[in-house]
Write a protein that binds this DNA or RNA. Sequence first.
DNA 1: TAGATACGTCAATATGGCTGCCCCATCTTC
DNA 2: GAAGATGGGGCAGCCATATTGACGTATCTA
Lengths: 169, 169
Amino acid sequence: MAAPSSVSAAPTASPLFLREHEVRRGVELLFFGYTRLTRAIDDGLAEHGLGRAHHRALYFIARQPDLTISELLKILAITKQSLGRVLTDLAEKELVETRTGEVDRRQKLLRLTAEGVRFEAQLFDALRTSLASAYAAAGQESVTGFWRVLEGLIPAEDKAMVIALQKDI
Amino acid sequence: MAAPSSVSAAPTASPLFLREHEVRRGVELLFFGYTRLTRAIDDGLAEHGLGRAHHRALYFIARQPDLTISELLKILAITKQSLGRVLTDLAEKELVETRTGEVDRRQKLLRLTAEGVRFEAQLFDALRTSLASAYAAAGQESVTGFWRVLEGLIPAEDKAMVIALQKDI
DNA sequence: TAGATACGTCAATATGGCTGCCCCATCTTC
DNA sequence: GAAGATGGGGCAGCCATATTGACGTATCTA
C-alpha cells in the first residue's frame, strides 16, 4: 500500500511484488543458514552431554573473559534461572570457572578453564569450517554485505553490545 | 593451514588471525540477527496461543500451497511426531486445511485457509518491516552478498530444496 | 499378492525456556 | 550507620518443542 508517486507502473512486477520475493528469500536463507551452521556443532556438544544453550554461554565467555553474569544475561537475553542451569552444568564439567570480582565483590567473573578453552576451540573449528567455506565461495565483497545486512537487523539498543564484543579480538 | 606460496608474511596479522575475527563476527551477527528477526513475530503468535514452530509450518505452507507432509518434514528437518502436534494445533485453529492428494491418495496436501492466509500475511508483515529496513540500510549490493554467503552455508544436499522454494514467487 | 511408502499415533523422555517468589552479600546513598 | 539498590543464587512448577522406537492403516507399485 501507499506506494508513492510515479506509479504508472504495470500491475505485474510491482515494487511490492519484488519486495516480498526479496524478503521471503532473506527469511528462508536466514532460517536454513542459521540452523545448518548450528547443526555443525551438535555432535561435538553431544559427546560431552551438552546442548546448544551450553555452547552459547561457552562461546560468549570465550569471547569476553571475565564477563559477569549480568553481562552474559544481557547478551543471551534469557532468564537468570535458565542461565543458572547452564552455568552449573559447565562448572560441573569443569569447562567454566568463576572468580569474585575485584572492584565489586558481588560480581562473579566468568572464565573458561584450560579444558574449556580447548573444547570451545574444537567447536569453533567446526563453525569456522562451515563459515569459511561460505565466505570463500561468496567472496570478500559479499561477506561485507552479509555483515551489513545482519547489523541492520539488530535493534539500536542492542547494537552497542554487539560492537563491544567485536572490539576485543 | 596450507596457505600456498608467497607466504613470507609477517607472523603477526597472519591470515589465520584475520580469519578467526571474521568468523566470530559472522557467528555473532547470525545469532543476533536471527534471534532478533524471529522475535519480531513472537507477540503476534502469542496472541493466537502459537509458538515459533507453528509459524515455521505456516510459513512454508504459505510459500508452497499443496505441500505434502513429507515435503514439509524435509524442509523443517524435525520428526513426524513434532510436526504432527504443530499441524493438529493449526488445523484446530482453522488456519490450515488438508486435502487428499489426487495423483497419490496417500498424500495429504496442505493449504492455508482464508484465515490462515490472513494471519500469515500479518506475521510476514512484521518480518518484512525488519528485513526491509535492514536491506534499505545496507543497500542492494550488500543484500546480494548477504544472500550469497547464506547460500554457501547450506549443504549441497539441501540446496535444491531451498532453490525450489524460491522458484514459485 | 508382496512390499514399499505416506501418514497417524502411542508412550516416554530431554532440553531449554518461562514465572513468581524469596534469599544473601555487597555496594551506594543519605 | 541505616536504607535501599544491585548482583547473584535458588525453589517450585510450568510450557514449548524436540527426540526415540514401535506399531497401525491406507494406498501405491512391481
